[in-house]
Protein backbone atom coordinates (compact mmCIF):
# COMPACT_ATOMS: atom_id res chain seq x y z
CA UNK A 1 0.00 0.00 0.00
CA UNK A 2 1.27 3.46 -0.94
CA UNK A 3 0.89 6.40 1.41
CA UNK A 4 0.15 9.99 0.49
CA UNK A 5 0.64 12.51 3.28
CA UNK A 6 -1.22 15.80 3.21
CA UNK A 7 -0.20 18.57 5.57
CA UNK A 8 -2.38 21.62 5.84
CA UNK A 9 -0.40 24.71 4.97
CA UNK A 10 -3.26 27.20 4.77
CA UNK A 11 -6.52 27.21 6.67
CA UNK A 12 -9.35 28.23 4.35
CA UNK A 13 -11.12 31.54 5.09
CA UNK A 14 -14.52 30.04 4.40
CA UNK A 15 -14.86 26.27 4.14
CA UNK A 16 -12.99 24.19 1.62
CA UNK A 17 -14.90 21.47 -0.21
CA UNK A 18 -12.55 18.52 -0.41
CA UNK A 19 -14.55 15.95 -2.34
CA UNK A 20 -11.33 15.14 -4.16
CA UNK A 21 -9.56 13.98 -1.03
CA UNK A 22 -10.20 10.27 -1.00
CA UNK A 23 -8.36 7.15 -2.17
CA UNK A 24 -10.60 6.71 -5.20
CA UNK A 25 -9.67 10.08 -6.68
CA UNK A 26 -6.02 9.85 -5.62
CA UNK A 27 -5.50 6.36 -7.05
CA UNK A 28 -2.86 6.27 -9.75
CA UNK A 29 -1.78 9.87 -9.14
CA UNK A 30 1.56 11.38 -8.16
CA UNK A 31 1.88 14.13 -5.56
CA UNK A 32 2.08 16.68 -8.38
CA UNK A 33 -1.12 15.51 -9.95
CA UNK A 34 -2.88 15.40 -6.61
CA UNK A 35 -1.76 18.96 -5.93
CA UNK A 36 -3.53 20.05 -9.09
CA UNK A 37 -6.90 18.55 -8.13
CA UNK A 38 -9.50 21.24 -7.54
CA UNK A 39 -10.76 22.38 -4.16
CA UNK A 40 -13.69 24.72 -3.83
CA UNK A 41 -14.58 27.71 -1.67
CA UNK A 42 -17.86 29.01 -2.97
CA UNK A 43 -17.31 30.04 -6.57
CA UNK A 44 -13.53 30.18 -6.16
CA UNK A 45 -11.85 27.13 -7.62
CA UNK A 46 -8.37 26.56 -6.30
CA UNK A 47 -6.23 23.46 -5.95
CA UNK A 48 -5.45 21.03 -3.17
CA UNK A 49 -1.84 22.11 -3.59
CA UNK A 50 -2.73 25.58 -2.41
CA UNK A 51 -3.96 24.27 0.94
CA UNK A 52 -1.84 21.17 1.50
CA UNK A 53 1.74 20.12 1.19
CA UNK A 54 1.54 16.76 -0.50
CA UNK A 55 4.11 14.03 -0.14
CA UNK A 56 4.22 10.50 -1.44
CA UNK A 57 2.38 8.85 -4.24
CA UNK A 58 -0.91 7.00 -4.45
CA UNK A 59 -1.17 3.34 -5.25
CA UNK A 60 -2.56 2.12 -8.56
CA UNK A 61 -6.00 1.57 -7.08
CA UNK A 62 -7.98 2.98 -4.18
CA UNK A 63 -7.40 -0.23 -2.24
CA UNK A 64 -3.65 0.28 -2.48
CA UNK A 65 -3.82 3.90 -1.34
CA UNK A 66 -3.51 5.28 2.16
CA UNK A 67 -3.95 8.97 2.89
CA UNK A 68 -2.70 10.62 6.05
CA UNK A 69 -3.80 14.19 6.73
CA UNK A 70 -2.07 16.39 9.31
CA UNK A 71 -2.86 19.92 10.34
CA UNK A 72 -6.11 21.75 11.02
CA UNK A 73 -8.93 20.35 8.89
CA UNK A 74 -11.76 21.82 10.94
CA UNK A 75 -12.87 23.93 7.98
CA UNK A 76 -12.76 21.17 5.42
CA UNK A 77 -15.80 19.32 4.14
CA UNK A 78 -16.22 16.00 2.35
CA UNK A 79 -12.93 14.43 3.50
CA UNK A 80 -13.05 10.75 2.67
CA UNK A 81 -16.56 11.08 1.31
CA UNK A 82 -17.65 8.44 -1.19
CA UNK A 83 -14.49 6.36 -0.64
CA UNK A 84 -14.87 2.73 -1.68
CA UNK A 85 -11.53 1.26 -0.54
CA UNK A 86 -8.14 2.09 0.89
CA UNK A 87 -7.41 3.97 4.07
CA UNK A 88 -7.67 7.53 5.30
CA UNK A 89 -6.33 8.82 8.62
CA UNK A 90 -7.11 12.41 9.57
CA UNK A 91 -5.19 13.75 12.57
CA UNK A 92 -7.50 16.66 13.14
CA UNK A 93 -11.08 17.69 13.64
CA UNK A 94 -13.03 17.87 10.37
CA UNK A 95 -16.13 19.56 9.11
CA UNK A 96 -19.27 18.22 7.47
CA UNK A 97 -19.75 15.14 5.27
CA UNK A 98 -16.60 13.38 6.45
CA UNK A 99 -16.95 9.77 5.35
CA UNK A 100 -20.40 10.32 3.90
CA UNK A 101 -21.61 7.90 1.22
CA UNK A 102 -18.62 5.73 2.14
CA UNK A 103 -18.81 2.28 0.57
CA UNK A 104 -15.65 0.60 1.77
CA UNK A 105 -12.16 0.97 3.18
CA UNK A 106 -11.11 2.39 6.49
CA UNK A 107 -11.47 5.95 7.71
CA UNK A 108 -10.11 7.19 11.04
CA UNK A 109 -10.56 10.70 12.37
CA UNK A 110 -8.43 11.60 15.34
CA UNK A 111 -10.58 14.50 16.40
CA UNK A 112 -14.17 15.72 16.32
CA UNK A 113 -16.38 15.77 13.26
CA UNK A 114 -19.22 18.16 12.49
CA UNK A 115 -22.71 17.25 11.25
CA UNK A 116 -23.72 15.03 8.34
CA UNK A 117 -20.79 12.65 8.66
CA UNK A 118 -21.14 9.04 7.57
CA UNK A 119 -24.39 9.92 5.76
CA UNK A 120 -25.89 6.89 4.02
CA UNK A 121 -22.72 4.90 4.74
CA UNK A 122 -22.93 1.58 2.94
CA UNK A 123 -19.76 -0.24 3.93
CA UNK A 124 -16.27 -0.06 5.41
CA UNK A 125 -15.05 1.02 8.81
CA UNK A 126 -15.35 4.58 10.03
CA UNK A 127 -13.91 5.44 13.43
CA UNK A 128 -14.19 8.84 15.04
CA UNK A 129 -11.87 9.19 18.01
CA UNK A 130 -13.58 12.39 19.13
CA UNK A 131 -17.16 13.62 19.21
CA UNK A 132 -19.58 13.59 16.31
CA UNK A 133 -22.15 16.20 15.34
CA UNK A 134 -25.75 15.83 14.26
CA UNK A 135 -27.13 13.51 11.58
CA UNK A 136 -24.33 11.01 12.00
CA UNK A 137 -24.95 8.05 9.69
CA UNK A 138 -28.35 9.46 8.77
CA UNK A 139 -30.00 9.58 5.37
CA UNK A 140 -29.58 12.56 3.11
CA UNK A 141 -32.67 14.82 3.25
CA UNK A 142 -35.67 13.19 1.71
CA UNK A 143 -34.06 9.80 1.30
CA UNK A 144 -35.46 6.76 3.03
CA UNK A 145 -32.14 4.98 2.71
CA UNK A 146 -29.79 5.94 5.55
CA UNK A 147 -26.80 3.98 6.74
CA UNK A 148 -27.05 0.53 5.23
CA UNK A 149 -23.77 -1.20 6.03
CA UNK A 150 -20.32 -1.03 7.58
CA UNK A 151 -19.29 -0.15 11.08
CA UNK A 152 -19.29 3.38 12.44
CA UNK A 153 -17.71 3.91 15.84
CA UNK A 154 -17.55 7.12 17.84
CA UNK A 155 -15.35 7.25 20.92
CA UNK A 156 -16.96 10.40 22.27
CA UNK A 157 -20.50 11.80 22.16
CA UNK A 158 -22.78 12.28 19.20
CA UNK A 159 -25.40 14.95 18.52
CA UNK A 160 -29.02 14.73 17.51
CA UNK A 161 -30.66 12.79 14.68
CA UNK A 162 -28.13 10.01 14.74
CA UNK A 163 -28.87 7.09 12.39
CA UNK A 164 -32.12 8.45 10.98
CA UNK A 165 -33.61 6.02 8.45
CA UNK A 166 -30.87 3.47 9.19
CA UNK A 167 -31.46 0.23 7.29
CA UNK A 168 -28.37 -1.82 8.10
CA UNK A 169 -24.84 -1.91 9.48
CA UNK A 170 -23.68 -1.19 12.98
CA UNK A 171 -23.12 2.03 14.85
CA UNK A 172 -21.44 2.27 18.24
CA UNK A 173 -21.35 5.48 20.24
CA UNK A 174 -19.27 5.14 23.33
CA UNK A 175 -20.43 8.41 24.87
CA UNK A 176 -23.83 10.12 25.07
CA UNK A 177 -26.29 11.05 22.34
CA UNK A 178 -28.73 13.94 22.07
CA UNK A 179 -32.37 13.78 20.91
CA UNK A 180 -33.77 11.60 18.14
CA UNK A 181 -31.69 8.52 17.64
CA UNK A 182 -32.76 5.78 15.25
CA UNK A 183 -35.79 7.70 14.03
CA UNK A 184 -37.54 5.82 11.18
CA UNK A 185 -34.96 3.07 11.53
CA UNK A 186 -35.74 -0.02 9.48
CA UNK A 187 -32.79 -2.30 10.16
CA UNK A 188 -29.28 -2.46 11.58
CA UNK A 189 -27.96 -2.02 15.08
CA UNK A 190 -27.16 0.99 17.25
CA UNK A 191 -25.23 0.75 20.50
CA UNK A 192 -25.00 3.74 22.83
CA UNK A 193 -22.73 3.20 25.80
CA UNK A 194 -23.59 6.46 27.50
CA UNK A 195 -26.94 8.19 28.02
CA UNK A 196 -29.55 9.04 25.44
CA UNK A 197 -31.52 12.24 25.82
CA UNK A 198 -35.06 11.88 24.48
CA UNK A 199 -36.99 10.36 21.60
CA UNK A 200 -35.08 7.15 21.27
CA UNK A 201 -36.41 4.99 18.46
CA UNK A 202 -39.30 7.21 17.47
CA UNK A 203 -41.19 5.79 14.45
CA UNK A 204 -38.95 2.72 14.65
CA UNK A 205 -40.02 0.05 12.18
CA UNK A 206 -37.32 -2.57 12.56
CA UNK A 207 -33.79 -2.90 13.92
CA UNK A 208 -32.13 -2.91 17.33
CA UNK A 209 -31.07 -0.12 19.66
CA UNK A 210 -28.98 -0.82 22.79
CA UNK A 211 -28.65 1.88 25.44
CA UNK A 212 -26.22 1.30 28.32
CA UNK A 213 -27.00 4.49 30.22
CA UNK A 214 -30.24 6.33 30.86
CA UNK A 215 -33.00 7.54 28.57
CA UNK A 216 -34.37 10.89 29.69
CA UNK A 217 -37.94 10.30 28.51
CA UNK A 218 -39.15 7.01 27.11
CA UNK A 219 -41.32 7.11 23.99
CA UNK A 220 -44.91 6.11 24.82
CA UNK A 221 -44.95 3.72 21.84
CA UNK A 222 -42.57 1.25 23.52
CA UNK A 223 -43.67 -1.55 25.80
CA UNK A 224 -41.47 -3.78 27.96
CA UNK A 225 -41.20 -7.43 26.95
CA UNK A 226 -39.04 -8.93 29.66
CA UNK A 227 -35.38 -9.19 30.57
CA UNK A 228 -32.60 -10.73 28.56
CA UNK A 229 -28.92 -11.40 29.20
CA UNK A 230 -26.79 -10.32 26.27
CA UNK A 231 -23.25 -9.65 25.21
CA UNK A 232 -23.14 -6.33 23.41
CA UNK A 233 -19.89 -5.02 21.92
CA UNK A 234 -17.88 -6.98 24.48
CA UNK A 235 -20.05 -6.15 27.49
CA UNK A 236 -22.08 -8.89 29.15
CA UNK A 237 -25.12 -7.57 30.98
CA UNK A 238 -28.83 -7.83 31.64
CA UNK A 239 -31.07 -5.73 29.43
CA UNK A 240 -34.77 -4.89 29.56
CA UNK A 241 -36.23 -5.52 26.14
CA UNK A 242 -38.83 -3.14 24.73
CA UNK A 243 -40.90 -3.60 21.58
CA UNK A 244 -41.79 -0.60 19.48
CA UNK A 245 -42.64 1.79 18.06
CA UNK A 246 -46.19 0.51 18.53
CA UNK A 247 -47.51 3.62 16.81
CA UNK A 248 -45.62 2.73 13.65
CA UNK A 249 -46.34 0.19 10.90
CA UNK A 250 -44.42 -3.08 11.11
CA UNK A 251 -43.71 -5.73 8.52
CA UNK A 252 -44.94 -9.28 8.90
CA UNK A 253 -42.80 -12.33 8.57
CA UNK A 254 -44.46 -15.75 8.42
CA UNK A 255 -47.65 -14.23 9.84
CA UNK A 256 -45.81 -12.73 12.82
CA UNK A 257 -45.40 -8.99 13.27
CA UNK A 258 -41.76 -7.94 13.37
CA UNK A 259 -41.17 -5.11 15.85
CA UNK A 260 -38.24 -2.84 16.39
CA UNK A 261 -36.34 -3.58 19.58
CA UNK A 262 -34.91 -1.35 22.25
CA UNK A 263 -32.65 -2.85 24.92
CA UNK A 264 -31.99 -0.86 28.07
CA UNK A 265 -29.10 -2.03 30.25
CA UNK A 266 -29.99 -2.74 33.87
Amino acid sequence: MNTVTLTVKKVPELYLECENVNPDVFAGKTADKIAKLPGYQGKEISTLGEYFTIAGEAGATAAETKIIINGDCSKMKYLGAKMTAGEVVINSACDMYTGSWMKGGKLVVNGDVHSFCGLAMAGGEFTINGNAGNYLGAAYRGDWRGMSGGVLRVKGNAGSDVATFMTGGEMIIEGDVDIHIGTHMEGGKIIVKGNANRRVGGQLVKGEIYIFGKINVMMPGFKPAGEVALEVDGTKAKFVEYLGDLGERHPKKKGETVYGKLFLKQ
Binding site: R199, G202, Q203, M218, P220, G221, K223, L246, G247
Partner: peptide, 21 residues
Protein backbone atom coordinates in the same frame (compact mmCIF):
# COMPACT_ATOMS: atom_id res chain seq x y z
CA UNK B 1 -45.65 17.22 21.08
CA UNK B 2 -43.68 14.38 19.53
CA UNK B 3 -44.44 12.08 22.42
CA UNK B 4 -48.14 13.05 22.39
CA UNK B 5 -48.43 12.50 18.64
CA UNK B 6 -46.73 9.14 19.09
CA UNK B 7 -49.34 8.36 21.74
CA UNK B 8 -52.19 9.26 19.36
CA UNK B 9 -50.74 6.95 16.72
CA UNK B 10 -50.31 4.19 19.29
CA UNK B 11 -53.88 4.68 20.53
CA UNK B 12 -55.24 4.65 16.97
CA UNK B 13 -53.69 1.21 16.58
CA UNK B 14 -55.28 0.07 19.81
CA UNK B 15 -51.99 -0.47 21.62
CA UNK B 16 -51.21 0.21 25.28
CA UNK B 17 -50.15 3.60 26.58
CA UNK B 18 -48.49 4.89 29.75
CA UNK B 19 -50.84 6.71 32.16
CA UNK B 20 -50.01 10.17 30.94
CA UNK B 21 -48.11 11.48 27.96
Amino acid sequence: DYELLNAFRTAARGEVLPDTV
